[in-house]
Design a protein around this nucleic acid. Structure first.
Lengths: 189, 189
DNA sequence: GTCTATACAGCGATAGAC
DNA sequence: GTCTATCGCTGTATAGAC
């Protein structure tokens, strides 16, 4: 599987896993090098400095998010099912008690470059816009029910999922995430 | 104000502000030393290593939380008002676009000692227990209304507040927090 | 209880050979 | 594109004087 990937992608895969485990300031080029099986100087060839690496990580993450929700949109027209599948994106890292890239970068925000901060905000904006659109569609369908604006509701859902990941991680208990996620879904019907 | 505090407390105040800004791995003894106006060696006298410092931070944080909710309990018997004041605890760091200590430590969990991890889980357990108790009381009063168990609802509230802090921070927009917090409150009535 | 001085490991990053 | 070798800096931590 990984044999098909070039070195840049292997570096990004490894770096992303490390960010999700220990945060952007918790790992070094040496950690990546050891896992990939190369030397630190080789990483600097692909990503001259750690800031470049951070930018590449969030850019790829955003791109993959766009592709994922586009696939959800093509595979189902059911708003509740869309939200269910959106929530599933967040549930994957919980099994390893890791937190998704965007939550970790939010925490590390103060130590990141302005470029990474802007892209992170852009990623969240894309999340909120997609969820808000699905909520509005579902409400006009009569399938989804919630108080207040779809904008506020989208914020609540995103925030709850982020917090749910942190709680699951702190308790080393994936059920804490599932519990919250299920409740979010059932509250919409 | 700070003149009354001894060096240990000044170190803890400074360290906590730094954790909330840049995370546990984002600052060094040198940063604390500069802000307090002492040398790094003096910090090691009070907190031999960084792990000791982390333990002292979360222990003090938990103690202050217990005192705060005890005060809330004595000052009002109104369940909705209790939740409102609980939410206010989380809103304070948002104005500086910092995240509360427990959220930052959750993110940095993988790099913390087992002792700190246990105390962090204990802090969240205390949070959930208090909120759950208030929710149950409010529901039996007929003042609060929500679907499902008070346990799940407490998890949702705590998770939402944590995520709301991260979103406010990422967008540098305290209103994102307020919006979510207000919606949490109005959903309970 | 705070200081100076220092040890030593790890960090990001670069030069230049291959 | 990857390597060896190395630089300069910062990190945590300690010894010992005051």
């Amino acid at each position: 599987m990984n044999n098909n990937k070039n070195t840049s992608e292997l570096i990004l895969d490894t770096a992303q896993a490390l960010v999700q485990e220990v945060g952007f300031n918790g790992f070094s080029y040496a950690h990546i090098a050891e896992k990939v099986g190369i030397r630190t100087a080789s990483i600097h060839y692909h990503f001259p400095n750690k800031e470049d690496l951070g930018e590449a990580l969030i850019t790829r993450y955003h791109r993959e998010f766009v592709a994922t929700v586009a696939q959800i949109d093509t595979e189902t027209q059911n708003s509740l099912e869309k939200i269910r599948r959106y929530i599933m994106i967040f549930s994957i890292p919980v099994d390893t008690y890791c937190t998704c890239l965007s939550v970790m970068l939010s925490s590390d925000l103060a130590t990141l470059s302005e470029a990474v901060r802007e892209r992170l905000a852009g990623f969240f904006t894309a999340n909120l816009a997609w969820v808000e659109r699905v909520l509005e569609q579902g409400r006009s369908d009569g399938q989804l029910h919630f108080q207040g604006s779809a904008d506020v509701q989208a914020h609540k859902i995103l925030a709850s999922l982020q917090g749910a990941q942190l709680l699951a991680r702190s308790f080393k208990d994936a059920n804490r995430f599932t519990m919250i996620a299920d409740s979010l879904l059932s509250a919409l019907t």
